[in-house]
Design a protein around this nucleic acid. Structure first.
Length: 500
RNA sequence: GCCCCUCUAGCUCAAUGGUUAGAGCAGCGGGCUUUUAACCCGUUGGUUCAGGGUUCGAAUCCCUGGGGGGGCACCA
């Protein structure tokens, strides 16, 4: 075998050949390298919490059966120390030749970093105080035939980290932590809603009309119906149909898809949380948003204090509410309001190097001026309220200013995190707004909306006053996990196909 | 779509245009019964992303293509 060039080297190919030969040898010797199951009595985390406080050099008679992946081996000859990783927690195995016997010890010596094992033994601490299991019996649970990344440096090549997320998660604790935050945030949302008697629902991802947001959809096709369908760009319109139906507090957490550019803040598929509550308006929804985010922070991080762009921020402190026209006016230095003429606003935009297109009306220009002057500076969580009617076709007009809406967006770290409003429930007014959307779309603004007749029919049955909310879960998780790229908190971000 | 940066062993990284592209880890062989990235001795391993060009000579310079990153544009 040593003459075989494939096994004499130590490149990846040779390494796989060597380990596959080991698999064959184990089977030939009557040991199954991929057994079906293993009985464990404790997770590693449970062992750590139950025995974590023992003094150095302690021996117990407490028997445990634990399992995990070997991520580190220190072989001192007749005594082997191996570190196993079990669901993010590490534990040392203390494997003595005198305890396990010569035959079993030979098996231990043949183990590779990356192999999955289950062991039976007693809990102890070493002289140095390291909590360990003194192994009496060891079972190989799955042979690894591909070497893990560097034990010290881990995996740093971002391409490989995202493509081989499985390897990233094994060797990079930071990567694991970011996803723990993500999943704790989502669990926290569910708990907050459950406590408020909301019902979690599931609505279609395949839409006939891609409505509820301004974005370009992914198109797909149903074969047997021979029908064009779109992947949803928002959840909104279906959830409000449920409000019409009398489900007066609903939420959904799910994927939405937008066929647009990819960046550190954008992935083509991302997770949206939307909720709707009958009898509430946008002020109630802002309160709900604060509660959701604060609970998410304390559930995911154990604190409401986070570092954002170098600033220490306590999310438990009240978040300022500022109107968009006020912020845009401050940013520009004169009064900016959708009541001003298109020509005036366009001149102002041009004077401030803000891009503008001929099709945009005063409302869109106001919003662009706000974004250009103010958006990036909103580091601390801030509710920006009163978006122009023109850019908010599903939001109800402000009770005091008919040109803007009762809408807010939550900004933090210069990014939009959430969006909510007093929902427009007047079917006649909604039809007018849809017609404006359709007209703009027909005039070439591809991301504008269409007339959703079924939604209008639902509104005609009558929708109670309703407050709605959408939270970009990925953006919020980025904020709480303190990462600058959305790819750090999406397990499998969209990438170009790998070349094999 | 545009601009800039980047790609070297399984992993992490070196290498003025100049011998046969090196090192640590991992692997392999040997030693070691309390290690902590264990340690000590020895050792294998390369389509330098791909293709083309310039040159006496290319990992290095140029061109084309590919992957990735960042920015812009797009994107409530």
């Amino acid at each position: 075998m040593s003459d075989d060039p494939a096994t004499s080297g130590s490149g990846l190919a040779a390494e796989r050949v060597r380990r596959l030969a080991q698999v064959d040898a184990l089977r030939a010797g009557g040991t199954e390298p991929y057994p079906y199951r293993f009985d464990r009595t404790h997770t590693v985390a449970e062992v750590r919490s139950a025995w974590g406080e023992m003094a150095a050099g302690a021996e117990t008679d407490d028997e445990v059966r634990v399992a995990g992946r070997i991520v580190l081996v220190r072989d001192t000859g007749k005594l082997v120390f191996a570190t196993i990783l079990d669901c993010g927690a590490e534990l040392q195995l203390f494997i003595s030749k005198a305890v396990v016997g010569d035959e079993a010890f030979a098996v231990v010596k043949a183990l590779d970093r990356g192999d999955w094992v289950g062991v039976h033994g007693t809990v102890m601490t070493t002289r140095a105080g390291e909590l360990s299991v003194k192994v009496r019996e060891l079972t190989l649970l799955a042979k690894s035939i591909r070497p893990l990344p560097d034990k010290w440096h881990g995996l740093t090549d971002v391409d490989t980290r995202f493509r081989q997320r499985y390897a990233d998660l094994v060797v990079n604790a930071d990567a694991r932590r970011a996803f723990e935050v993500r999943h704790a945030v989502i669990a926290s949302f569910r708990a907050t809603f459950a406590a408020r008697d909301y019902v979690e629902v599931e609505t279609p991802l395949l839409h006939l009309e891609a409505g509820g947001a301004h974005a370009r959809p992914f198109e797909t096709h149903h074969n047997s119906l021979d029908m064009q369908l779109y992947l949803r760009i928002a959840i909104e319109l279906h959830l409000k149909r449920l409000i019409v139906g009398g489900m007066d507090r609903v939420f959904e957490i799910g994927r939405v898809f937008r066929n647009e550019g990819i960046s550190t803040r954008h992935n083509p598929e991302f997770t949206m949380m939307e909720s709707y509550e009958a009898y509430a308006d946008y002020e109630d929804v802002m309160v709900l948003t604060e509660d959701l985010v604060r609970h998410a922070a304390s559930d995911a991080l154990g604190t409401t204090v986070v570092e954002v762009a170098g600033e220490t921020i306590d999310l438990a402190e009240p978040w300022p509410r500022r109107s968009m026209v006020e912020l845009a006016s401050e940013g520009i230095g004169e009064t900016i309001h959708p009541s001003r003429s298109v020509d005036e606003l366009r001149r102002i935009a041009e004077a401030h190097d803000v891009r503008c297109e001929s099709s945009w009306g005063p409302g869109r220009l106001v919003e662009e001026l706000f974004e250009a002057t103010t958006e990036k500076s909103l580091i601390r969580p801030t509710f920006v309220t009163g978006h122009p009617k023109e850019t908010s076709p599903l939001a109800r007009a402000d009770r005091n200013d008919p040109l803007v809406t009762e809408r807010f967006e939550l900004y933090a770290n210069g990014r939009e995190i959430a969006n909510g409003y007093s929902e427009l429930n007047d079917p006649v007014e909604q039809r007018r707004r849809f017609e404006e959307e359709q007209a703009a779309k027909d005039a070439g603004e591809v991301e504008r909306g269409t007339i959703d007749e079924d939604y209008l029919r639902a509104l005609e049955y009558g929708m109670p006053p309703t407050g709605g909310l959408g939270i970009g879960v990925d953006r919020l998780v980025m904020l709480l996990a303190g990462v600058e790229s959305i790819r750090e908190i999406i397990l499998f971000p969209t990438l170009r196909p790998e070349v094999w």
